[in-house]
Every structure is written in C-alpha cells, then in structure tokens.
C-alpha cells in the first residue's frame, strides 16, 4: 500500500472516516459501560499502556515519560484488561458503585502510517468524569492507537496514552481510557 500522504484526497477521507467512526463507537461503549462489548474490539496481542509523566527542565524533556518496562499507570495486555472488566462487574468494586458518569471526547484524528492491515493514528481526547454529588475529574491527553483489520472488522491492537497530568489529580483511575 502507498504511504498515507501519497493517497488521493478521497482515499484519505475514507480511511480517516472509517478510523474515526471506530474510535467514536469504541468511546461510546466505554461511556455506556458496555465493557464486554468493548473487550471484543481488542486484539489478543493488544498493548494498553499509559506511562508516567514528570516535570523536567526543558533541557531534559526527553526524560519526561517513563519507558516501556518501567513504572506506568497502565501496562496491560488482554489478560489484565479482562481482569479489570471482570473486577468491575464482580460486585463490591466500590469506586464504581455508585457508578461514575463519564463522557469521552475524541478529536484531532491524524493517520500517521498505514501498513498492510494496520493503521497507526494519533488522536487527542478528553475524559470527563463525575461521581456522587461533587466528585469531578478531567483528563486530557493524546493517544497513539494502532488499528488492525481482522476478518474485515477493525480492532484495536495497541493503545499508548500520554496524559498531560504529572501528579494524577484524582483519587483513582477506575475507568478505562
């Protein structure tokens, strides 16, 4: 397949539209807490990772994020993502009972690379969460998502999440990004 930027405008629009619709649908499943359906959108080899971010001087900005294999907020494979979902539906997952209310905004979708069945894209997101009477959290960040076409359907094969916060200003991250 040709490089993304070498494709015609029409081809680029179609690919971008399809990727965006996948991301919107996936975000809706998370907002609606249809977590088992969400799991079905993931490939078996998914890497779901959110590194830590630190305040550094401008000179040392290359040390801002932790590297794969070091500490992370999420460093999950399909097994641990299933465990998270199973835990949330097991009862006594107090942080989500009463449930939080979330709304995900996914924007600025840019396709970075296409290769065979795979599309690597970058997008911005906001995850707004409120719970009980006055708890309020908001996370803004950028994601790099790798989509793969499996038997004609798009699936999420990798999600790397780069938050803007350093110290997490929330008492937990009981939700998925």
């Amino acid at each position: 397949m040709a490089a993304f930027e070498d494709l015609s405008l029409q081809e680029r629009m179609l690919l971008t539209f399809e990727a965006e619709q996948f991301l919107f649908q996936e975000a809706a499943l998370l907002d609606e807490k249809k977590l088992d359906e969400w799991l079905n959108l993931l490939t078996e080899d998914i890497h779901y990772w959110m590194p830590l971010r630190r305040t550094t001087t401008a000179k040392e900005i290359d040390r801002e994020f932790t590297k794969p294999g070091d500490m992370a907020l999420f460093d999950d494979d399909i097994r641990t993502l299933r465990l998270r979902v199973e835990r949330l539906s097991a009862g006594r997952a107090w942080a989500e009972d009463p449930p939080s209310r979330t709304r995900r905004m996914v924007t600025n979708v840019r396709i970075l690379e296409i290769s065979g069945d795979e599309t690597l894209l970058s997008c911005n997101f906001q995850l707004y969460r409120t719970r009980l009477a006055s708890e309020e959290d908001s996370w803004i960040g950028r994601r790099e998502d790798l989509l793969r076409r499996v038997d004609g359907e798009l699936k999420l094969a990798r999600r790397h999440i780069f938050l803007e916060q350093t110290v997490i200003l929330a008492q937990n991250m009981s939700n998925l990004f």
Binding site: M50, G69, M71, A72, L73, F74, D75, D76, T80, L83, R84, R87, A93, W94, A95, I168, A170, Q171, N172, M173, S174
Partner: peptide
C-alpha cells in the same frame, strides 16, 4: 513489575477502592 504496576497506585486493581474510604 506486573505486581508493582497492577496492585497499587491510582489504577491499581486493589488501591482503586481505598481512596474513597
């Protein structure tokens, strides 16, 4: 590292439920 990244911390499978108490 699996234990360190999945038990405690804000997204930890155990610690998620502590903060609220």
């Amino acid at each position: 590292m699996f234990m360190a990244n999945h038990v405690f911390g804000p997204a930890g499978l155990l610690e998620q439920d502590d903060g609220e108490n």
